[in-house]
Design a protein around this nucleic acid. Structure first.
Lengths: 110, 110
DNA sequence: TGACAATACATAAGACTTCTACATATATTT
DNA sequence: AAATATATGTAGAAGTCTTATGTATTGTCA
């Protein structure tokens, strides 16, 4: 597990990228996918994820579909066209940020 | 300039690494160095930097030396042995975090 | 020489993100 | 029957950083 601060600012990017890859996902599924793909190194908490999802929805980047699974409700999130655009730009920004940081922190080998 | 959120959690690491490289530096010098080395892509604000420096000092990772340049005061910061250790561990953590993120965001090529 | 920009320190108030803890409820495993 | 996993969500607090402000000295250029 990484210090929490590092994760700040990357949660949105992670969520958007996963949705772009998987079409549609629900909250719990996202937490599990991240945990699984990072071998437990990144674990999203509900307290961070749900507010983030709601915010992205309010901004028009995500839409929801509610599905009944037995008696339980499941809320699927998927990208809007605007969300697609934002995902691409977030990924690009993150990638550029990493390059800059790697250069800054490792000027000899970069 | 990157969205502010991305920078979160990296400020300490940046400061520690610069001090490890340059021996001792003062606040303004740090802001200029970062700006210069990142071609303006990362710009530290004083409101973020000084509280961070004070915090690191309070934690025993940095010590200060005050030097008078004419009538102006200059406060040099340098790493303590404890600071050296922390720098290494922060850099390691950041590097590992980047690997994980790259894998997560780009599963095909990683 | 007067004005402006750069150097250099610093704090205060607020925004934003995330965490911890809690609340609720169903389904599955032991 | 109890515990764990699935599933969504909120409230309050913590932490980091931003914006704005303040003070003072030094350098530059018109």
């Amino acid at each position: 597990m990484y210090s929490k601060e590092l994760l700040k600012g990357t949660l949105q990017t992670i969520v958007l990228k996963l949705l772009a890859e998987n079409g549609r996902m629900y909250g719990y599924e996202i937490t599990q996918k991240v945990k699984e793909q990072t071998e437990g190194k990144i674990q999203l908490t509900e307290g961070a994820l749900y507010p983030a999802l709601h915010k992205l929805e309010a901004e028009g980047l995500l839409v929801t579909e509610t599905v009944n699974i037995g008696k339980r409700i499941r809320k699927y999130y998927s990208l809007t066209p605007k969300g697609d655009v934002q995902t691409a730009s977030k990924l690009e920004e993150f990638s550029s940020f990493i390059s800059t940081m790697q250069f800054l922190l490792n000027p000899k080998t970069s």
